[in-house]
Design a protein around this nucleic acid. Structure first.
Lengths: 245, 245
DNA sequence: CGTGATTTTGAAATAATTCAAGAAGCGTGG
DNA sequence: CCACGCTTCTTGAATTATTTCAAAATCACG
């Protein structure tokens, strides 16, 4: 509503901040002094094979994590039986933060690939945040970004949502693998994409076909190939190139 | 997608955390020692009449605020010419926080009523967050809550969204005016509601009529009246009463 | 090589939007 | 106090994007 017709809310030229390349992943964004401090709290390292849960919604979970290696999917089961995928965590991301710091988890974390983590006791999270303001700040900023992602897609149609998601993932992966040109491996399915963007798997499938026919991108066999980077960005609403520093 | 039919993602019994009464507004949630510290950064107090902007999207704004009195609406103009209302700020809320701490504002703030604020220089925000971890923590938690609100409504239909919003507002206002029983004054229009929930004003109107006919609530002339508190909570998906402590 | 998961496609149903136009409400100034 | 204009609300009819249901085709793993 409040469409472009009437007075309309003008959009400042350089808006699309969510399209900035995400800051260095959480760990790297912390000053080394704090990282050192972090070690102090460290419990141990842990490994988890693909398709295993790191924690599950409803659990009174006792640990928090930074992801060292692999992909983790955070999702939330909703009252209507559907699920909302909240985030695909990549190495450096912090896991197990939520608004209710001490209560049961409000979302689940599932390893999409074999993963390794740094583990910290959850009861230490608040002390950690108090002693390392940089951690609190990063958590605030990363949460704000997830929030803004959700707000941004909520007014896009199916094509734009797909474009936005793939653009974001592509950029993020590229930070970890600078050699990449136009094809990346994504350990996710059409159903995952649907649950990330609030669309049905069927509609995701049809929309992917359109994007393929329009030669913007291809996603098949877990491989994403960008065919027309510029069109992708326009469609995603991320034209303002200047901001991607 | 991933509907309740197939394996389905089971919902833990006590989930609906967003329906908790929000913690005391930001200022009150801070230890008095930090509040004292906050004074140190304070610039001045400010007043703003209704219908004036506190800041606007795109501006390189120089201040941040805590809202002392009145209602402020935070909203974002979207690429398609629509707007998304992000939050209705009530006394005690912090204003002007976003993931890009130093860049131009990604949203606007509009006074819905005459307001008063505490003003702080924006360049001091990061130092403030560093020196007062409790501030960073509160910002992280409040942002997480806004995020969860957005996620939660994204899978609800029009009736459920309206119910969820009104329930949340009702609870929050009640904290400020404990005397209230079932009717509160909201300085917002049907169009605002639509822009908050991602619906058209027309559809909000029709849905309000349904809710009135079903004797769940009434919203007319800026007055919200809860007619059936229990049905409202069920519809909103906030049945788990135990959580509203 | 078979079995379960994932993808593909079609047809029908639906929630919400768009367009349109009139009615009611609200503030301001004569 | 009424008249004027502007904003907000109300309602109807037609349109649309997306979902739902269903069934077949393909893929991928042990």
């Amino acid at each position: 509503m409040t469409a472009a017709k009437k007075p309309a809310y003008p959009l400042p030229a350089d808006d699309c901040h969510t399209c900035e390349i995400r800051e260095q992943a959480m760990c790297r964004a912390m000053p080394s002094q704090d990282l050192h401090h972090l070690q102090h709290f460290r419990n141990r390292q842990a490994l988890l094979p693909a398709k295993q849960h790191l924690y599950q919604q409803g659990q009174q979970h006792r640990q928090v994590y930074t992801l060292h290696d692999g992909w983790v999917m955070l999702y939330k089961a909703l009252p209507n039986g559907k699920r909302q995928i909240l985030r695909y965590a990549l190495p450096g991301d912090f896991l197990c933060f939520q608004s209710n710091l001490t209560g049961p988890m409000q979302h689940s974390a599932l390893a999409l690939t074999d993963c390794s983590f740094c583990v910290f006791p959850r009861e230490q999270l608040l002390p950690m945040m108090k002693q390392m303001p940089q951690l609190s700040i990063q958590l605030a900023l990363f949460t704000a970004r997830d929030y803004e992602f959700q707000v941004d897609i909520s007014h896009k149609n199916a094509q734009q949502r797909l474009a936005y998601l793939f653009y974001d993932l592509f950029i993020r992966i590229k930070q970890h693998h600078p050699g990449i040109t136009d094809t990346v491996q994504l350990p996710i399915t059409q159903e995952d994409i649907g649950d990330t963007l609030g669309l049905t798997q069927v509609h995701v499938n049809r929309t992917l076909r359109q994007l393929r026919q329009e030669e913007i991108l291809e996603f098949m066999h877990h491989k994403l190939s960008i065919r027309n980077y510029r069109s992708l960005k326009v469609l995603a609403g991320c034209e303002a190139e200047s901001l991607h520093i």
